[in-house]
Simulated assay, not measured.
Amino acid sequence: MVATFSPGGATTLATASGANFGWVRSLPLLAGISFGLALMAVAAAGGLGSLILAAPSLQLAMKLVGALYLLWLAWQIAKRGKPGNAAVNEKPASFLTGIWMLLQNPKGWAMTLSAAASFASLTPGPASLALLLSLVFGVSCMCSLALWCGAGLALSRQLKSERQWRFLNMLLGALLAVSIVPIWL
Rank of each mutant, 00 (worst) to 15 (best):
M1I: 13
V2K: 06
T4D: 01
T4A: 02
F5Q: 01
A10L: 02
T11M: 06
T11A: 07
A14D: 00
A14I: 09
T15P: 04
T15N: 05
A19H: 06
F21V: 03
G22T: 15
W23P: 04
R25T: 12
L27C: 12
L29T: 08
G32R: 05
S34E: 01
G36L: 02
L37F: 07
A38Q: 00
M40S: 03
A41H: 15
A43L: 09
A44K: 12
A44W: 05
G47N: 07
L48H: 01
S50E: 15
L53A: 13
A54H: 04
A54L: 08
A55Y: 11
P56R: 11
Q59D: 03
L64R: 10
V65A: 14
A67I: 09
L68F: 12
Y69A: 02
Y69Q: 02
L70R: 09
L70F: 10
W75S: 03
Q76R: 09
I77D: 00
I77R: 14
A78L: 08
R80P: 04
G81I: 12
G81P: 03
K82W: 13
K82C: 15
N89Q: 11
K91M: 14
S94F: 09
F95Q: 03
W100N: 06
M101K: 04
L103M: 12
L103I: 08
Q104W: 15
Q104P: 10
Q104S: 15
N105I: 10
N105Q: 05
K107I: 13
K107E: 01
W109F: 06
M111C: 06
S114L: 12
A116E: 03
A116Y: 14
A117R: 13
A120G: 07
S121N: 15
L122E: 02
P124C: 13
A127C: 04
A127E: 00
L129D: 00
A130W: 05
L131E: 01
L131V: 08
L131M: 15
L133I: 15
S134I: 10
V136M: 12
V136Y: 08
F137A: 00
F137Q: 00
V139H: 09
S140T: 11
M142Q: 13
M142K: 08
C143A: 14
S144L: 05
C149R: 05
C149N: 06
G150W: 06
G152Q: 07
L153G: 02
A154F: 15
R157D: 01
E162L: 12
Q164N: 08
L168K: 04
M170W: 13
M170L: 09
L171T: 13
A174R: 10
L176G: 03
L176F: 11
V178N: 02
S179H: 13
S179C: 14
I180K: 04
I183T: 12
